[in-house]
Simulated assay, not measured.
Amino acid sequence: MNLRPLRPTDLARLVELNDAAYPAVPITPPEEMTALLGQADFTFGVVDETDSLLGFLIGLRPGADYASENYRYFDSRGADFLYVDRIVIDATVRGAGLGRMLYDAVFALARDEARAEIDCEVNLDPPNPQSLAFHDRLGFRRVGEQETKNGTVTVALLAALL
């Protein structure tokens, strides 16, 4: 397995992986995924030996013009952070260490940039206990909770201090 930045040619596979992970992440049509990639400050894809995308991570730095309620929460705190907007792993390879591989890259980037923390959110409702446990093992701690998407989703707002 290798890491590389996401490419425009990954779009169809990104949408396929993303939408298969619903409700952990929102359904995202190709044009919205293209816009998100255009706003992203950093991306990582984990690929196999044939360069087939098995998972991805999309993130932003502070100060982005990004409408996400969760991103705005972290940006308003004034912390020096990297924000993980979404991380998705193909269901057929979950548990194989690919999520940790992607987060290792984000932690390395945060250390290189002397950031104070890495931030993300995980669904509480609809529940995502596997993701909460995964983030807990990586050192993330709950710093808040909020309802999003007009009260249809409740998230735990998480931060891992560096």
Rank of each mutant, 00 (worst) to 15 (best):
L60F: 08
S68V: 05
L57G: 09
E69Y: 13
S52W: 05
S52I: 10
E69A: 12
N70A: 01
V47I: 15
L60A: 05
I58R: 00
A67Q: 04
D75H: 10
F56Q: 00
A67G: 04
A64I: 01
L54W: 07
D48Q: 11
L54R: 10
Y66P: 00
A64Y: 04
R61S: 13
S76G: 11
R61I: 01
L53H: 11
N70Y: 01
G55V: 12
P62Y: 06
R77S: 06
D51S: 14
L54P: 15
D48S: 11
G59D: 07
Y73T: 13
D48T: 05
A67C: 06
S52D: 12
A64F: 05
A79D: 15
L54K: 09
D48F: 13
D48E: 13
Y66S: 04
N70C: 05
Y73N: 08
F74K: 06
R72S: 05
Y73A: 08
D48N: 15
G63M: 01
S68K: 00
D75I: 13
R72E: 03
E49T: 11
A64S: 14
L54N: 14
I58W: 03
T50F: 07
L53V: 11
Y66K: 04
G78F: 06
T50Q: 14
R72M: 01
N70E: 15
Y73F: 15
L54F: 10
L57D: 01
F74C: 02
E49K: 08
Y73R: 06
Y73I: 02
E49R: 09
